[in-house]
Nucleic acid binder design. Structure first.
Lengths: 157, 157
DNA sequence: CTCTCAATTGAGAATTATTATCAATATTAG
DNA sequence: CTAATATTGATAATAATTCTCAATTGAGAG
């Protein structure tokens, strides 16, 4: 586990403690996965990865924990039209994503700030803007290369 | 019906004809609603609005039509984490939205182009970027004013 | 260490938005 | 008008997610 992931996991754990909630082994494992994963896993993906260490873990536990961590501001959720939300515990604040339409992978590019546009949007609308979601959709380098081959199933990672 | 909405409706109808598909009264009514609505209705909202003129219309028909129009590129879909996609038939291309976290309304602000950031994202990632989604979230002027009152239910408009 | 209490779990049921199935119906080209 | 095939509505099915509840557990106090 990287120092970054350790920091994220500690932050999540601290938030739970501060809220008087318990740190169960299941929760710790889920939060760790959220903190470590660069690939923005969905609930199903998290569950599948944890089954080996927690053979009896219930999907409900994964959903609950993920929602809890999100509600505490320590993870963010990215929802898609075909169902299946994806989660990010590494960067639990608004940031842009690039999503491959073929394989479903999601990456976090380093891009300039959306601050100007946010202010512009607030001025144009009179809204008090709190957050944003910015996703770019396209084909990743790997899928572009494999264009003539069968595309793997997307989503639900 | 405004000239803009008429133009949108005609474009949708033409797309269906061009695809060898039939223009049923239900489809026309749904597409008209999509073309006219500035408020980005969801499937349920469309269905509720059409019940008076088509008492027997099935929700399945709404879902099917909306999906069809979307797949023909004449409407776009905005999905949210708590379920319930919203649709836009007026501007069936990527454009920014501002979403009120309190009442759920969605507006289309006039903002500057995202072209620079798109190019930046493509360069940073090697992706071939086709489209984007940009939503800002906050509190609309009306809900800000009514801050001390009970917030109406969101979504599903 | 033990006890207590309230949070948490897992199993199974429930929910909800959406999609699939199919017989009856309707659109539209010729 | 006829025929062909797309489309509808009614109903069932699906899938992601949330709810319910008895059993279990984490963690603080003593």
């Amino acid at each position: 586990m990287s120092a970054t992931a350790r920091k994220r996991l500690d932050a999540m754990a601290a938030k739970l403690k501060a809220s008087g909630l318990k740190l169960t082994p299941q929760r710790l494992a889920i939060m760790r996965l959220l903190a470590e994963s660069e690939d923005h896993p969905g609930a199903d993906g998290i569950w599948r990865r944890l089954k080996r260490r927690f053979p009896g873990i219930s999907p409900a536990t994964v959903y609950r924990t993920v929602q809890l961590v999100k509600s505490l501001g320590e993870a963010c959720e990215i929802a898609f039209a075909d169902g299946g939300s994806r989660y990010d515990g590494r960067k639990p604040y608004p940031h842009p994503h690039i999503v491959c339409l073929a394989c479903g992978r999601i990456i976090d590019p380093e891009l300039g700030s959306l601050g100007d546009m946010t202010r512009e949007a607030a001025a144009a609308s009179g809204f008090e803007i709190k957050t944003f979601r910015l996703d770019f959709f396209g084909t990743c380098p790997e899928c572009s290369k494999n264009k003539t081959k069968t595309m793997p199933t997307r989503r639900k990672k």
